[in-house]
């Protein structure tokens, strides 16, 4: 319990201090900015289009910090809730977003796939991708 409280404290302190991660799209994408709500809807597959374009969300596989941060800050759901959500959605024919095993592959996926949207640590952002939200 003490461990979890320590982790939450660290994370909270970081979020309040500065953005560590960025939601990105390909550099050629026509989307420049999306709200966190819209991003959440897209990653929970409640919404597939934004600004007239079909978006393809891509998650980082596993429980790596970017994903944990994304789920806590953007999706605002812990892993248990998220699993319950996708279990329920599965019966509606909605499957979780695609995953990539590494940050590099997430970045490459976003570059290769038209409409792909993902998240990376802010320091991995370069001109091949476009940041539409930071968290």
């Amino acid at each position: 319990m003490k461990c979890w409280l320590l982790i939450l404290l660290i994370l909270f302190s970081q979020s309040t201090l500065s953005a560590d991660f960025a939601v990105i799209v390909s550099a050629t994408s026509g989307i420049d900015v999306l709200s966190s709500e819209r991003i959440r809807d897209i990653f929970l597959k409640k919404r597939r289009f934004a600004q007239g374009k079909r978006l393809v969300p891509v998650n980082l596989l596993g429980s790596k910090p970017p994903r944990l941060a994304f789920e806590r800050r953007i999706l605002e759901m812990d892993r248990l809730n998220l699993q319950q959500y996708w279990t329920a959605s599965h019966f509606k024919g909605v499957t979780p977003p695609a995953t990539q095993a590494s940050l590099a592959s997430v970045k490459l996926f976003i570059e290769k796939v038209d409409g792909a949207i993902g998240y990376l640590p802010i320091e991995m952002v370069d001109d091949r991708v476009k940041v539409i939200y930071e968290f």
Binding site: A98, T99, Q100, A101, S102, A104, S105, L108, F109, K112, V113
Partner: peptide
Amino acid sequence: DDLLTGDLDKR
């Protein structure tokens, strides 16, 4: 889907 990334992660 990793095919799109050239199986970068060898998954």
